[in-house]
Design a binder for these strands. Structure first.
Lengths: 192, 192
DNA sequence: GTATAACCGGGACAAATGTCCTTTTGCTTG
DNA sequence: CAAGCAAAAGGACATTTGTCCCGGTTATAC
């Protein structure tokens, strides 16, 4: 549920420690908007500490959470390839630290640093791999099954992430999520 | 709805014409399974002619279509990065021609051919960019709106792609799709 | 030509989910 | 400690979507 990529954060830290000009450490408090949807930016971030949510919101203000990103995940990178506007907003959930670099430097590293190039290529491929089954599963199964599944992969999810965000992640309303949670609880109570 | 990437197919054709050893042209009839889910393969394909559907199926045989891929789109590439099993099946809808290359050659080209590397990087980034808003939209809006949207981006969709596939693409049952189509028709009839 | 099978389209009902709104809970702040 | 606020819970009803099944059409074989 919360994705990570330790290999990449390790590598970024190494670049930073090597004093690579242009790599900057940034820090944010919780609930800060680091990237807004439909805007242009010139930086890529790699998370070194904390969790963000990455979401699309529509005209009615509804949010649909794409992913929760943890240590080692990058964001803002898609726009480094094609100079388009962002499709997601990115907001910190916890305290956050990132290493950021400009599109220019990012592309330069991709060109000149094979290890970096490979890491980013894998990171992109993983994002694709991850998304496909998730959306498929969400469509095909009722809410309850999705919650059970979440609990399995990430038991502490309610402690870190708000109910509203979880609902937006599964793609249902908070009301429906509650209903499902209640029914799950009743079922487990009965079986005791 | 049917994704393409002409720059990539052009480049692949150039590689092929240059007699690049290991790039092979392959041809398939309609409804052939080129890749099956949860298997291992050692080839990457780039489409040079035709359309495929790329889908996940669950234990109950339900299909969820991830994308329709047209000329210039690649498939089987994710597994070249991490040697895992496939997450999607890929089946031809029309007659199909691809240029295929082994994982080895694919990775070699990524390493040695900067133009190729950049093209693939962009292609991966585009796949991510494309998926996010699609699933978001499908969740947030009723079936009817999704159909209207399909019609706008791809008016001839019913002629090429079967009803069942369209339903699986939107993530609803054929029954629901029919209902929505009927209501749309009635609405347009009334306004005449 | 007729029988048989496969394939829609759609009716009727059931189930899941959303909407709206009220109540409860827990936490912050003065 | 009380007041105020934001998040969470849930009741009541509406809407959407799924499930099951039937009847009609088209294709196919003999």
């Amino acid at each position: 549920m919360i994705r990570t990529n330790i290999t990449l954060s390790n590598y970024m830290n190494k670049l930073w420690e090597a004093g690579n000009v242009g790599v900057r450490r940034e820090a944010f408090g919780p609930k800060q908007e680091i990237i807004a949807q439909d805007r242009r930016y010139t930086k890529v971030h790699v998370i070194t500490e904390g969790i963000v949510k990455c979401f699309i919101s529509d005209e009615n203000g509804k949010e649909f959470i794409q992913e929760f990103l943890g240590v080692g995940m990058e964001f803002g990178e898609l726009e480094a390839f094609n100079n388009l506007t962002t499709i997601c907003s990115v907001t910190s959930i916890t305290n956050l630290e990132t290493l950021s670099l400009s599109h220019n430097l990012y592309n330069k590293l991709l060109d000149e640093d094979r290890v970096f190039n490979k890491l980013i290529m894998k990171s992109l491929a993983d994002k694709i791999r991850y998304k496909a089954p998730r959306h498929s599963y969400q469509h095909a199964y009722p809410i309850e099954d999705n919650i059970i599944r979440l609990k399995e992969t990430f038991p502490e999810f309610t402690e870190v992430i708000s109910k509203k965000d979880i609902a937006n992640y599964i793609g249902v309303t908070p009301r429906s999520l509650n209903r499902a949670l209640k029914e799950l609880k009743e079922k487990s109570d009965r079986s005791k």
